[in-house]
Design a protein around this nucleic acid. Sequence first.
DNA 1: CCAGAACGATTACAAATCTGAACGATTACT
DNA 2: AGTAATCGTTCAGATTTGTAATCGTTCTGG
Lengths: 153, 153
Amino acid sequence: MALENPPGSAFLLAAVGAHAAARFAERVAELDLTPPQIGLLGLIAASPGQSQQAVAHVLGMPPSRLVGLVDALADRGLVERRRNPTDRRLHALHITDAGQAALGKIATIGREHDDALCRSLDSSERETLRTFLSRIAADQGLRPGIHPGYRTV
Amino acid sequence: MALENPPGSAFLLAAVGAHAAARFAERVAELDLTPPQIGLLGLIAASPGQSQQAVAHVLGMPPSRLVGLVDALADRGLVERRRNPTDRRLHALHITDAGQAALGKIATIGREHDDALCRSLDSSERETLRTFLSRIAADQGLRPGIHPGYRTV
DNA sequence: CCAGAACGATTACAAATCTGAACGATTACT
DNA sequence: AGTAATCGTTCAGATTTGTAATCGTTCTGG
């Protein structure tokens, strides 16, 4: 793009959104976590006990890719793979206490990140922005809490 | 994330922005162009005659990466590498008539994309959204027309 | 009850992409 | 002239991401 004068909302959204994602990735790097790992951690916390395949389907990624992400979180003790006694094929994903603690830090970082990003908007304007973005997200079929573009950096 | 209730502006921005970028990539795929190529094409059109290294610096990408993008655009006849007679090291980048025509199509696609994305907002609300996003972009140091996150898809 | 199909997770493999260092050509400095 | 710096290019390495084959487990139909 870079050709519209003035730029349309879509271009601005993509540019500011990419900037927001990049800055968030920088902030959470100090926890040795990547955005995809954080997205997975949050999803497991929101709906625990799901099988890996179900999670992979929700996130729209191949199950083979999920294995590595779960491995990374499990190695740090943030999530657990529990075998389901009734169906020992599937691994139910659960969050640990350490995972909950990590989520707390992430939430704090997220709020700081939010404030830094929107510091040029007052409280009422931020609320309006959230309203518009939520409406677009709902209209476009984006499920709340799911990120289409969680890339590693 | 997927952990904030309700989600903050930054998360919404990243999610909606990634969605906008993905949908735009789908639309321009019918022109056999990727978003990075389009960003480069637009930049060359906006400031022609620049050297490749200067362009690479502006876009924040290594010069080695720019070579492939310029190759792709040059192979289709959308841009030209012209040797500067006074300094034959550098290749000045210029847009061709075919490149201008392609930009016209891209602008049309961009407007359609914009309308589709913001169809749940009325005209006044879209203007407000643009204002807020522009203010954030300026405050965050995003140069207009430059995309921090132009990935291949 | 048993054989085979179906399913979930994992591993191995392959394709695509980005980065960083080296190289040839050209120019600037002394 | 000659040495160092610059520009574009290319190449090898590393990082990701998707696809296909493997292994254990469970379900289904005789």
